[in-house]
Design a binder for these strands. Structure first.
Lengths: 204, 204
DNA sequence: CGATTATTCGAACTGTGGGTCGATATTAGC
DNA sequence: GCTAATATCGACCCACAGTTCGAATAATCG
C-alpha cells in the first residue's frame, strides 16, 4: 500500500502546485488583460521559475484554458443543482441568476475573468474549447426556462432569443460594468429582472 | 491662387488615403481582434506597403486611436443634436438609444469596434485617449437625462448609476450579443426599454 | 548509501511583428 | 526638362516573449 499512498500524495501535491500557478495566472490576467499577461510575470507572481510552469503546463494557452475550464465547470455544477429544482420556470431562472451574483460577490476576479476572457478569442477558438461545453449547457438551460416560462405566461411574449440577450446584457451590465466595483446585491438584481420581465406571476 | 488650390487637393488626397488605411484596419480588427491584427495584414488589405502606413500614421496605436476618435466623435455629433431637443427626459433618452440602433444597423462593423475595442485597453490607457472625451460626454448626457427623469417620475426611483448600468447592459446585449447578426429593430429596443423603465409616463 | 526518478530553474534559442532605412518612382513648380 | 518635394515600398533591424535545454537539486526506493 505504501506505493499507492505515496503516489496519491505526489499527485495531490502536483495538483496543488498547478493550482498555485493558476492563481498567480489569474491575478496577472486580471491586472494586465489576456495578451498583456507575460509568462515571466505569471512565473514571478506564482513563485515558480518560468521553466517550471512548462513542467506543469504545456503552453500559455493551456493555462488560460485550464482556468476557464475549472471556472465554468464549477459554476455549472453549482447551477445544475438549482436548475433541477421543481419551481416554476421564472422562479428557477431568477434563482440561477441570483446564485451567480452570490458567487461573483465571493470571488469577483475569477468571475470577471470567466465572463470577459472569452471575448479575447476568436469565435473559432472558442468553439473548440472544453469550457465552452459548460457555458453552452448553462445557456441552454436558461433558454429552456425562458421558453417554458413564456408558455406558462410568466415571461413576456417575445422571441426567446431576444429575451435571453436582454437578460444577459442586463445582468452583465449590473454585475460587471462600471469602475466602482461596489458589489451588487441580490435584491437589486431581482428588482431589475422583475421589472423587465413584468409583474405577471412575479408574486406567485 | 494656384498654390492654395493644389495644396488643398493634396491635403484632401492625403486624408482620403488615410481613410483607406483606416477602412482596411477596421476590416482586419473586426476579423482578428485587436492584438491579432498585424500591421502587415492591414497594409495588405488596405493596398499599401507597410512603410507607407508609417508615412501616414506614426504607430499601430495611432491607427487604433484614429478609428476610435473618428467614430466616437461622429457618433457624438449625431446624438448631440437629439439631446438638444426639448422633449421629456424619457423621450430624449429613448430617442438617443434608438438613434444609436439606427446607426449601428448602418455600419455594424464600425460600431462593434467602437463599443468593444475599449475593453482591450487597460483603464489607464483609456483615460488618456482623445476619443474618451466624446464617450464621456455621451454618458454624462444620458446620466443627466436619467436623473431628471427620476425627478419627473418618468423613471423608476433607483440609483441613477444602477439604471445607467442596467440600460447600458440591456442595450449592449440586444444590439451586440449573439452570433446571429440579425439586426435588431428600433421597435424591439423600444419595447424592452419600455418594460424595464416601467409604464409610468410612457404613453405621455 | 547509490541509483533512478521527479522537480526546479536561469540561460539560451527562436519566431514574430512593430517599426526604420535607403532606394526608387511620381508629382509639382518653374 | 530639371530640381525639389512628396509618396511608395520591400528588405532589414531588433526587442520581446513563448518555449526549450541542460544542468543542478531534492525526493524515492531497494
Amino acid at each position: 500500500m505504501t506505493k499507492t499512498a505515496t503516489a496519491n500524495r505526489k499527485s495531490a501535491e502536483r495538483a496543488a502546485r498547478q493550482e498555485l500557478i493558476l492563481q498567480g495566472a489569474l491575478a496577472v490576467f486580471r491586472e494586465k488583460g489576456l495578451e498583456g499577461a507575460k509568462i515571466d510575470e505569471i512565473a514571478r507572481v506564482s513563485g515558480f521559475g518560468k521553466a517550471t510552469l512548462y513542467y506543469y503546463f504545456s503552453s500559455k494557452e493551456e493555462i488560460f484554458s485550464a482556468l476557464l475550464l475549472n471556472g465554468w465547470r464549477s459554476l455549472w455544477r453549482e447551477l445544475e443543482e438549482i436548475a433541477r429544482g421543481d419551481d416554476s420556470p421564472r422562479t428557477l431562472f431568477i434563482s440561477m441568476l441570483k446564485k451567480i451574483v452570490e458567487l461573483v460577490n465571493t470571488d469577483r476576479p475569477l468571475y470577471e475573468f470567466l465572463f470577459q476572457a472569452p471575448q479575447s478569442f476568436t469565435p473559432e477558438e472558442n468553439e473548440r474549447s472544453e469550457w465552452k461545453v459548460y457555458q453552452n449547457r448553462l445557456y441552454k438551460v436558461l433558454m429552456e426556462l425562458i421558453e417554458q416560462g413564456i408558455q406558462e405566461g410568466e415571461f413576456p411574449e417575445m422571441e426567446p432569443r431576444l429575451i435571453m440577450r436582454a437578460m444577459g446584457g442586463l445582468f452583465h451590465g449590473l454585475v460587471f460594468l462600471g469602475k466602482d466595483r461596489k458589489s451588487i446585491t441580490e435584491n437589486e438584481i431581482e428588482e431589475m429582472l422583475g421589472s423587465l420581465l413584468g409583474k405577471a406571476g412575479q408574486t406567485k
